[in-house]
Design a protein around this nucleic acid. Structure first.
Lengths: 216, 216, 216, 216
DNA sequence: TATGAATGAGCATTCATTCAT
DNA sequence: GATGAATGAATGCTCATTCAT
């Protein structure tokens, strides 16, 4: 006799957490698509449910409120941002790591759409303190990780030792965010500018005077 | 049947254009306040009218659609951005101009609210091609003006001659946008980071190796 | 030049309070019909609007909430209850006044429907303190008026002098309410019982031993 | 193909009827609590199930419809009303029996809540003929029993012989219902009025002129 | 039997917009 | 020009009920 949930011995249909998690993801996927297309406030729960292939009522069994759905989506997105730092870390040099990251954040078409969502997230954070807290926390992690990385490259001599690592990290993230903003209105953020961004950062931080890239 | 009013010979348009323009501004002012507080889609025409002190129906005599109102507001905001370039121009050195601009864009509390609206604008531009065109055009002007300025300082030797001025202009604007994004979630964009941003830009563009600021 | 509202000299369409009051009544009439048929909670705003012949949105320009509509309706109904006391007063004797009132409250088919609404009102009062307050206030007025009347008939010798007039008033009202309750399930509250009720009250209050009615 | 379970020869109904009855009661108990708090229509099946400690789906295995649940609850409540008659019967005198009953119906806090449900029942009866029939039947029983009792006390000389016993019974029940209505909006139905009610009834029915109570 | 999961229909309320004055 | 009044079409969310396990 296998031991089961300690609460009820007269079990009905057993709960299936995996199926639940999958549904949740399914709904979040649909929500993401709608939010990208319309923004948080213009996307209706009806649209989201349809896109996700579930009923409206079902959606509400997974998220008690549209705001909860938005918050959950944002949390999911933000935690994935930390992976970026891993890329810089894995690369041999700071410059090479930057190039890989920039490529990923700005050039990958899949990421591009997520980037556009970032504007919505920031806009929402400016009104909803709960969202602001979530974004702030994710930002703290990201800045800390990137700052630590910068310190490492300061020690290796690639980055100027007198630069404040935390501020530099914040500025790099800001530059990324700003570039994402350019995607929003279809400005040329493509290959050319992306490369220029890398050089811009490297030159701002470099320990020794770097010759500017020809393409910048 | 009375003959035409002897006052206006200009046939059929008795309206006072100045009063009309004032009302228009009045409505736009109310709209701006509401849009800041709630975003474009969450702010209702009723709210906007109330804030502006006019009736809803009156609003519709100046803007045929809420979308038109949004577009008009965005156009107004964007054209004012060009003034910033004038500041850099007026200052004696590039660095000093940057400092003044940064101060204005990021530290002035009145501007800060406008900054937050910028996120909405970019988000909206990512969905509405008409808005995107408006933003793109304003961006082109801004980048051109800032680029010309950079060229000037390249000629004067303050900025490295091999840097692509247009790209540099785009990156500077991006950095500003990104920093505005930080305001949205209450991150420390205050004095400290603002100063660091100036140094960051200067170091990235400088003709000669600058010693990093102590505060960066 | 006639003086107008002191606020705005540049008048738009002038407000028409009479038309507004009529619409309000129209909506309340529709609401009463629906509430009788279905009860407060089962009647939908859509139904009410349709019955009243207005749009749902229009209803909400007169009552900010369904609860406000319910409360307004209850208030209107309750204030009309005081008219009943006038009937007893106008009649020559207490017994005659009672007969007229009973007839009106219980036998008039138009009133009968309103009576059924009374059950809803009391039920709602048991949950909604705001409604309870409204009902309590109306009850206080009714009991006071009826009590004063009883005192008058005590002085004229028709009602026993040692009876507490306020309690007697409350009991009479209670008996009416209870009889209204019988209408709800179609019990015989018709002529027969109505006459018996009058005798019941008269015998309970009479100064001298009355011979019971043959029909009681 | 396995042969029938040897346990039950009674073909196909393996269920434990006692356990079933207990569950049924458990659900009815939860329903009663919810209905008191919110009324029949505002209480949701989800709330009821939660209050009863069962799943929603389980509720539906005992009652095919929310309306069936309501009806079952009403039937259960109404049959218990007949017990009241027993109290009057057990008491030595009519007056004493009344006092005990009144006390129970109006002063017992547990009964008070049930009383409030009575308003809901009557209101529902006014719309749902099926409910009306149930209430009517219970009322017939109650009136018959109380009428028989009155006849008994007419024979013993305590109640005036010319009074119509059935009508008197109906009026007594009506007065109780009306007093219950007063509980709904928190009117003073407390001890004072309860005592007055007893005197009121006694005086209305008494064979000989009774001196009014000092407290009435 | 009993439960978790799912859903169509509906609910109170709001919105952008129009019309009449 | 400006306003009060009106409305069709949503919107976020809930409900009674069913199905699968």
């Amino acid at each position: 006799m296998p031991s089961r949930s300690p609460k009820s011995s007269t079990l009905g249909r057993p709960a299936n957490p995996e199926a639940r998690a999958m549904r949740r993801e399914q709904i979040l996927r649909g929500a993401r698509a709608c939010f990208r297309r319309k923004g948080f406030h213009a996307a209706s729960t009806a649209e989201i449910s349809a896109e996700a292939g579930v009923s409206v009522a079902n959606l509400y069994q997974y998220f008690p409120t549209k705001d909860h759905l938005i918050k959950a989506l944002i949390e999911e997105d933000l935690t994935s941002d930390l992976d970026l730092v891993g890329m810089v870390e894995a690369a041999g040099s700071f410059r090479r790591g930057l190039e890989m990251t920039t490529q990923l954040v700005l050039a990958d078409p899949a990421m591009t759409d997520d980037g556009l969502l970032r504007l919505e997230v920031l806009a929402e954070a400016s009104r909803n303190p709960e969202i602001a807290a979530v974004v702030r926390e994710a930002d703290d992690h990201l800045v800390a990780a990137l700052g630590a990385l910068i310190v490492r490259y300061q020690n290796s001599g690639e980055i100027h030792p007198e630069i404040n690592a935390a501020d530099a990290a914040r500025l790099i993230v800001s530059l990324y965010d700003g570039l994402i903003g350019r995607l929003a209105f279809g400005a040329a953020a493509e290959t050319e500018l992306v490369a220029a961004a890398d050089s811009f950062i490297v030159r701002a931080l470099a320990a020794v005077r770097a010759v500017p890239d020809p393409d910048m």
